[in-house]
Design a protein around this nucleic acid. Structure first.
Lengths: 129, 129
DNA sequence: CTGCACCTTCCCCTAAGGTGGAAGGTCAAG
DNA sequence: CTTGACCTTCCACCTTAGGGGAAGGTGCAG
């Protein structure tokens, strides 16, 4: 199948597939006589795997590492477990940071709601920040 | 004061101050006879304001807008209130997305923890994703 | 023959907030 | 006179995941 078919089968664009190839997520594609990339059917499931992994928030580099293990004949299970565990702690960290930031902003906002615009100190740029 | 002094007084680098000037967060600096930027004392409090606003998650463009209102002689209070309100809803949105993502990853991870590496399906790249 | 849809490579662009380095000017101390 | 610490401008680069579009090749239908 040609790149456009593979792309629409996987819900991506041809551009994205070439980009993934450049990033090492897809092996160098076979070429037809005219130079067009020629993909086997299982490329679509590989692209699906990439799409699912992206939705889990994995970076292309993390996905590439998993695929590399698979391509080398290994079972990436243990590695995937580690990646997912790290992803969980990363997410917890990001969520905690955002919640702390939200609290700060909420405090500023409450101050801004309560204050009288007339009492604005001309010496400060804005008393609420 | 020269740019290096202003930078260390505000806890920034000289590079960053020039960058802020380029982005319109600082007025075009006065120049000494030798061409060096020459800052008044209140520049430090302006830089402090920028730093505080950055810590509240405001973008440089948002901060620039607030400063522009102030520089035009206005009181940015009302605008700041709007910006903070929008920032709050943005943060809530981001937090909700991250929590949903975390749930997805947690599900995958639980599956990966429970599974037997030997039962790995060689046809799939990884059954956990 | 001409269109049209598809493919190829190549390079530039995006958002955000800076950082790094090159080439050169300025000034005080030793 | 030289060294070193400043300063100047300008240009390039970093992160991530692609998108836009040029210039040109391929293949089928009308």
């Amino acid at each position: 199948m040609r790149i456009g078919e593979a792309a629409s089968a996987a819900g991506l664009t041809a551009k994205t597939i070439r980009f993934y190839e450049g990033r090492g997520l897809l092996p160098t594609a076979e070429r037809a006589a005219n130079g067009y990339r020629d993909y086997a059917l299982d490329t679509v499931s590989r692209l699906d795997f990439i799409r699912r992994s992206r939705m889990a928030g994995l970076t292309l580099a993390q996905i590439r590492d998993i695929l590399t293990i698979r391509d080398a004949g290994g079972t990436p299970c243990a590695h995937v477990r580690d990646v997912l565990a790290r992803q969980l702690t990363d997410l917890d960290c990001q969520i905690a940071e955002l919640i702390a930031l939200r609290a700060t902003v909420a405090r500023y906002h409450a101050g801004a709601e309560a204050a009288d615009p007339e009492s604005c100190d001309p010496e400060r740029i804005c008393s609420y920040l």
